[in-house]
C-alpha cells in the first residue's frame, strides 16, 4: 500500500510540473499560437518534400507515391509520438554543459522523469495530429487488402516505431555525458532517422543502408510495417516474417537504450560550472 501511495504522490508531482509547463508556454499567446500552427504544419512540409520527388519521377526505389507516403505516415506518426513524449531529452546537453544537471540529480525524483517534464512542450501535439491524418489518408488510398493482422499492424507499427524513436532519442542524448559539446551529433540519428525512415530503404545502398537500416534498426519503423500492410514481398529478399517484427526490434532497442542511459547517469561527472 505504501508503494502505491508513493507512486500516486510522484505522479501528482509530475502532473503539476507538466501543468506548469503548459501554463507558462500558453501565457505568451501570440507566440504560442504561431508555434502551434508551425508545429502542425511541420509534418505537412516534410510530406511536401517527399512528394516533391514525385514531381520528377513516378517511382522511388520501386514504390509509387501512395506506397511511399504510407511509409512516411508510419515514420512521421512514430517520430512525432516519440518527440512529444521524450524529444526534449535532447536538451540534456545544455544541462550537462551548464552544470544544471547537478540540481536535477539531487532531487528525489527520477532523472529521466524530471528532464522529460521540465521541458515538456504541449505544442508538439499539433504535429501528431497532422502525422496521423497523413497516415490515415495514405492508408485509405494505397489499395490495402485488410486482414486482422494488418489492422493490428496499423496500430502496432506506429507504437513500435514510437518506442524505437524514443530509445534513439534517449540513447543518443546519453552521449552528452561523455561528449560535453556534442551539439547536433544526436540529430544525425533522431532527425536523420526520421528522414531515413520516410523513404523505402531500397533507395539507399552500401554500408550506409546496412548500418542505418539493419544495424541500428531504422528499417523497422516505416519500411517493413508498410510492406506488411501493402502485402508486398521485400525486394531485398528478406523473408515475409521480417516485415512483422517491428515490435521486437523496438523492444530490443529500448532495452539497449535504457542500459546506455543508466550507464551514462552513473558516469556523469559535473563540468563544475
Amino acid at each position: 500500500m505504501a508503494d502505491l501511495s508513493e507512486a500516486t504522490r510522484r505522479l501528482g508531482i509530475y502532473r503539476r510540473l507538466l501543468g506548469a509547463q503548459v501554463r507558462s508556454h500558453s501565457s505568451y499567446r501570440a507566440s504560442f499560437g504561431l508555434d502551434l500552427t508551425a508545429n502542425a504544419l511541420m509534418p505537412l512540409l516534410d510530406v511536401a518534400a517527399v512528394l516533391a520527388m514525385f514531381r520528377v519521377t513516378k517511382t522511388l526505389g520501386g514504390f509509387n507515391a501512395f506506397e511511399v507516403v504510407v511509409m512516411f505516415g508510419f515514420s512521421a506518426t512514430a517520430f512525432t509520438l516519440a518527440d512529444l513524449a521524450v524529444g526534449n531529452i535532447e536538451r540534456i546537453r545544455f544541462y550537462v554543459r551548464q552544470g544544471t544537471l547537478d540540481a536535477v540529480l539531487i532531487r528525489p525524483l527520477s532523472v529521466l522523469g524530471q528532464l522529460l517534464t521540465l521541458d515538456f512542450t504541449i505544442r508538439r501535439v499539433g504535429r501528431l495530429v497532422v502525422a496521423l491524418a497523413v497516415l490515415g489518408f495514405a492508408v485509405s488510398r494505397a489499395n490495402i487488402v485488410w486482414t486482422p493482422g494488418r489492422m493490428i499492424m496499423l496500430i502496432a507499427g506506429p507504437l513500435s516505431g514510437a518506442v524505437f524513436f524514443s530509445a534513439i532519442f534517449v540513447g543518443t542524448a546519453t552521449v552528452a555525458f561523455w561528449w560535453i559539446d556534442s551539439g547536433e551529433f544526436a540529430n544525425g540519428f533522431t532527425y536523420g532517422g526520421k528522414d531515413f525512415t520516410s523513404y523505402p530503404i531500397t533507395v539507399y545502398s552500401g554500408l550506409f543502408r546496412r548500418v542505418f537500416a539493419y544495424s541500428l534498426g531504422f528499417a523497422f519503423v516505416g519500411y517493413y510495417p508498410s510492406l506488411a500492410l501493402l502485402g508486398r514481398a521485400d525486394p531485398l529478399g528478406l523473408p515475409a516474417w521480417v516485415s512483422w517484427s517491428s515490435p521486437l526490434v523496438a523492444l530490443a532497442t529500448a532495452v539497449v537504450a535504457s542500459v546506455v542511459w543508466r550507464f551514462g547517469v552513473r558516469h556523469y561527472r559535473s563540468t563544475g560550472s
Binding site: M53, T57, L60, G61, V203
Partner: peptide, 8 residues
Amino acid sequence: VLLAAAAG
C-alpha cells in the same frame, strides 16, 4: 534519395 528520383 535524389539519385533514386533521378533513376526513377
